[in-house]
Amino acid sequence: MDQTRFEAIVAAYGADPKRWPEAERDAAIAYAAAHAVDLSEARAIDALLGAAPPIAPPGDLLVARIARSRRQNLLAPLAALAACAVMGVIFGYGAGLSAPAQVNAENSDIEQVLSAAFDAPASAWSSEDS
């Protein structure tokens, strides 16, 4: 322990040896005892920090709120899965209702093309194959 290191410790951690790094504490205490060290500024800053307002422990309401948020967080994926299933059913049913109309429309388009090309209904061509 030399003067530079002792001053660095006091500047960082203050005048109270309990706050000094454990590995260097004994050496720093011995240094302070053997030398005329001025700790007045460090003590003043310690007093300032000691005058800071205390922080009360949070109440049970916060603990309950955190527990609730955990449960909601756990349920969120299940809720999303259920929503997907419901949407799937709805869209599936809707698609089922609209699908025949689409097929009919496609069939009528084909019929129009064949009629225009060969001047005969499509049923006439299909019966020829059989």
């Binding site: 007045s40 500024e41 800053i45 005058a51």
Partner: peptide
């Protein structure tokens, strides 16, 4: 870390020198 602590403590003292004097006077 020690550099951050030392600079923070010095700045606090500079801002509140009058409060520090009062507190040390009370001690």
């Amino acid at each position: 870390l020690e550099s951050l602590l030392a600079r923070g403590r010095r700045a606090l003292h500079a801002k509140l020198a009058d409060v520090a004097r009062d507190l040390m006077g009370e001690v």
